[in-house]
């Protein structure tokens, strides 16, 4: 390996990111090349400087403020998250069935089918919406939040 190729990989080597043959080649080169060895030493010293930095404590009054907030807040219930994925899928399937049913089987159904089915869908969708809101609140960029948003858009379009 020649110097300029090694230099491009030295930082990755220094942070422990290389394995196998590339790592072995760099080690072999550095053994014989003083300039690259010096560069690697500088990168490692930089790592040492970073390791020497210390944490800073949050101001002492922060915990008291957190406690005050804790007393006045409501926690997000557990059950919603577990049910969320299935709730979403079930809600989407039920919605699709409702749409298809309304067009194909509508005239053959009971006297007020929309009202009965719609109540079931509302409950599922309500759980879905609540679950989605929880997901968005906790992690706005999570997959769950994104999927929920997409479903909401699709339902809106539908």
């Amino acid at each position: 390996m020649i110097c300029h190729k090694v230099r491009r990989k030295l930082a990755e080597y220094a942070v422990g990111g290389l394995r196998g043959r590339t790592r072995a080649r760099i080690e072999e080169h550095v053994r014989d090349c003083a300039a690259c060895r010096a560069e690697l030493a500088a990168l490692e010293r930089t790592g040492g400087l970073l390791d020497s930095l210390s944490l800073e404590e949050a101001p002492a009054e922060t915990w008291a403020a957190v406690q005050r907030e804790m007393r006045g807040t409501e926690r997000v219930p557990v059950a919603r998250r577990v049910r969320w994925a299935w709730g979403t899928a079930a809600g989407a399937v039920a919605l699709a069935a409702l749409v298809v049913g309304a067009f194909v089987l509508g005239p053959m159904g009971p006297a007020e089918p929309q009202l009965v089915v719609a109540t079931e869908v509302d409950e599922e969708m309500q759980a879905t919406i609540e679950g989605h809101l929880s997901a968005v609140w906790a992690a706005p960029l999570s997959d769950e939040a994104a999927v929920g948003l997409r479903l909401a858009v699709l339902e809106d379009d539908g």
């Binding site: 930082a11 990755e12 220094a14 942070v15 422990g16 990111g17 010096a38 030493a41 500088a42 990168l43 010293r45 930089t46 790592g47 400087l49 970073l50």
Partner: peptide
């Protein structure tokens, strides 16, 4: 890993007076 490596390169240059032996 890539972010750490790029950061290490940049910091090594900025801190040259402390790390070049």
């Amino acid at each position: 890993m890539s972010r750490l490596a790029r950061a290490r390169e940049a910091l090594r240059k900025r801190l040259s007076r402390y790390v070049e032996g």
